[in-house]
Simulated scan of single mutants.
Amino acid sequence: MSGESEAASTGDDSDGGPTDRDATAADTMRERAGENRAKLWLLLRANRLVVAGVLTLVVFVAFVAVSAAFSPSLAGKVGASDPIETLFSAMITAIVTGATLVVTIGQLVLTQENGPLGDQRERMDDTLAVRDSVAELTGEPAPTDPAGFLDAILGTASARARDLRESVRERDGDGSGEPDGPDGTGLEADVDEFAAGVVGNADAVHDRLDGAAFGSFDVVFAALDFNYGRKLGRIERIVADHGDALTDAERDSLEALRESLSLFGPAREHVKTLYFQWALIDLSRLILYAAVPALVVAAAMVTVVDAGTFSGSTLGIDHVTLVVGGAFAVALLPFSLFVSYVLRVLTLAKRTLAIGPLVLRDSE
Rank of each mutant, 00 (worst) to 15 (best):
Val297Tyr: 07
Tyr341Met: 08
Leu263Ala: 08
Arg208Thr: 04
Asp362Val: 08
Leu209Asp: 07
Ala294Val: 14
Gly243Asn: 13
Leu246Lys: 02
Ala245Asn: 04
Arg123Asn: 12
Asp132Pro: 00
Ile287Thr: 14
Ala129Asp: 12
Leu150Trp: 06
Leu40Lys: 09
Glu364Trp: 03
Met91His: 05
Phe149Met: 12
Ile84Ser: 04
Val342Met: 15
Val320Glu: 00
Leu254Glu: 02
Val345Glu: 14
Arg251Pro: 01
Val59Tyr: 11
Thr104Ala: 15
Ala62His: 04
Glu193Thr: 12
Leu337Phe: 15
Ala294Met: 11
Ala354Ser: 10
Val359Met: 09
Gly197Lys: 06
Gly229Asp: 02
Leu280Val: 10
Leu224Tyr: 08
Leu128Asn: 03
Phe221Lys: 11
Phe328Val: 03
Ser253Cys: 06
Arg32Met: 05
Asp225Phe: 01
Val50Phe: 14
Leu110Lys: 06
Arg123Asp: 15
Ala290His: 09
Asp151Ala: 15
Glu6Arg: 12
Asp241Met: 01
Gly17Trp: 05
Asp282Phe: 11
Leu286Asp: 14
Ile105Ser: 00
Leu74Asp: 05
Gly34Phe: 11
Gly106Tyr: 05
Asp126Thr: 08
Ala159Met: 02
Ser340Pro: 05
Asn227Leu: 01
Val302Tyr: 03
Ala90Cys: 05
Val54Ala: 13
Leu343Val: 11
Asp15Ser: 11
Asp252Lys: 15
Tyr289Met: 15
Leu337Met: 07
Ala299Arg: 02
Ser14Ile: 13
Ser313Leu: 04
Leu257Ala: 04
Leu209Ile: 04
Thr303Glu: 11
Phe276His: 11
Thr93Gly: 14
Asp82Cys: 03
Ser14Thr: 14
Val323Lys: 01
Arg258Ser: 15
Val61Met: 08
Lys39Leu: 12
Glu35His: 14
Val342Leu: 13
Thr10Met: 08
Glu269Tyr: 09
Gly16Phe: 08
Asn227Ile: 00
Asp362Glu: 14
Arg344Thr: 09
Asp163Phe: 05
Ala159Ser: 15
Ala195Tyr: 02
Val359Asn: 13
Leu358Phe: 12
Arg361Cys: 00
Ala299Asn: 08
Gln107Tyr: 14
Val339Ile: 14
Leu263His: 07
Ser284His: 09
Gly34Val: 10
Asp82Pro: 03
Gly106Ile: 08
Val271Thr: 09
Val342Arg: 09
Ser2Met: 06
Val339Tyr: 08
Glu364Cys: 00
Phe264Met: 05
Gly79Ser: 15
Gly215Ala: 11
Ala26Leu: 12
Phe149Gly: 06
Gly79Tyr: 12
Pro83Trp: 03
Ser176Leu: 07
Ser311Lys: 10
Gly229Pro: 04
Tyr228Trp: 10
Ala157Lys: 02
Pro334Leu: 09
Arg123Pro: 02
Ala327Asp: 02
Ala327Trp: 05
Ser336Met: 14
Asp13Ile: 04
Ile105Thr: 04
Gln277Trp: 05
Gly325His: 00
Ala222Ile: 01
Phe217Glu: 07
Asn36Tyr: 06
Leu346Pro: 02
Gly197Gln: 03
Ala38Thr: 13
Val345Ser: 09
Ala204Ile: 03
Glu178Met: 14
Ile95Phe: 11
Arg37Met: 02
Asp132Cys: 00
Gly215Lys: 07
Gly316Met: 04
Ser9His: 05
Asp318Lys: 05
Ala300Asn: 03
Leu110Asp: 08
Ile153Ala: 07
Ala212Val: 04
Ala142Pro: 03
Leu254Asp: 02
